[in-house]
């Protein structure tokens, strides 16, 4: 099986307080931010690797995983990291976040899919920076491929179809898709028994979470192919249809006051807060 995994780098969500917005409010200040792979995309990569191996012998690949991202040169750090984790090849489309919207990314991915002809496109359900949750769905529409979103489990069947489990209110809904297809994943996809290729014994349990890149793999990743394309090559010069109008930080919290008794509290709630 050949899988295309779409990745996006995001500002480290654990350091959200580093995100600054200039007074003009027209952009997010990116200088000085620490970048990480969008966690859901990390999970998508892990799922794709599990689908292209026998879990008992993960070093022998039985498929191919190609990772793709749209972004500036520095994004190659995240791509190399994905290659160290186990992906086989990488593609970077030169772009800046300001020049993209969900629709344009989907158009770009469609062009990459046309060239790579993967059996599956797997990606995170959304990026944790914009939380737009658009690209997977838009791509499936453009390709006219079946789609399963928010996948918690994926099982490759002997006949070539895939069973995708989605956790919904009150239970699990299982879809059977005939590749080629688009799957977006949720965080449960990296649980020990979430993903099985047809080569992996169902008794096998993976270590919980995303696998770690060992040093030999890190060194080998330096030599894996990484192709670079221009945005125009994959979008035919199309431009975003949505543009960012304004950014605002949440209002800073004001210091509270201390009251001496319940009577004062009630009085202030009535006269100052005006909630009574």
């Amino acid at each position: 099986m050949k899988i295309l995994v779409a990745l996006k780098r995001v500002a480290d969500p654990d350091n959200a307080n580093k995100v600054k917005i200039p007074a003009s409010g027209d952009k997010v200040e990116t200088a000085g931010l620490e970048w990480k792979l969008n966690p859901f995309d990390d999970y998508a990569l892990e799922a794709a690797l599990r689908l292209t191996e026998n879990g008992k012998n993960p070093k022998a690949r039985v498929g191919e995983v190609v990772v793709v991202t749209l972004g500036p040169k520095e994004c190659e750090t995240q791509l190399r990291s994905a290659l160290a984790t186990g992906a086989d090849r990488a593609i970077r489309v030169e772009a800046t976040d300001e020049a993209l919207d969900g629709r344009l990314v989907a158009h770009a991915l469609r062009a990459i899919v046309a060239e790579e002809k993967p059996d599956l496109v797997v990606m995170g359900k959304q990026a944790v920076d914009g939380d737009n949750n658009q690209v997977g769905q838009a791509l499936a529409e453009l390709l006219d491929w079946p789609m399963a979103t928010f996948a918690a489990t994926i099982e490759e069947e002997a006949a070539g179809s895939v069973l995708v489990g989605r956790e919904v209110d009150g239970g699990v809904c299982t879809l059977r898709l005939k590749p080629p297809a688009v799957i977006t994943v949720d965080l449960r996809i990296v649980a020990p028994a979430s993903v099985y290729s047809k080569h992996t014994d169902k008794a096998h349990k993976y270590a919980d979470g995303v696998r770690f890149a060992a040093l030999p793999a890190i060194m080998a990743a330096k030599k894996k192919p990484l192709a670079v394309k221009t945005l125009a090559e994959v979008t035919g010069g199309a431009t975003p249809t949505a543009s960012y109008a304004k950014f605002e930080l949440p209002p800073a919290r004001k210091a509270g006051i201390k009251v001496k008794d319940v009577a004062e509290l009630v009085q202030r709630l009535a006269t100052e807060a005006k909630v009574l």
């Binding site: 770690f212 890149a213 040093l215 890190i218 330096k222």
Partner: peptide, 18 residues
């Protein structure tokens, strides 16, 4: 080089998760 940073990150994630 980059491989040292990447390995440190990998060890750090292992430490934070496990």
């Amino acid at each position: 080089d980059e491989s040292h940073d990447r390995l440190r990150d990998s060890a750090r994630r292992f430490a934070e998760e496990r």
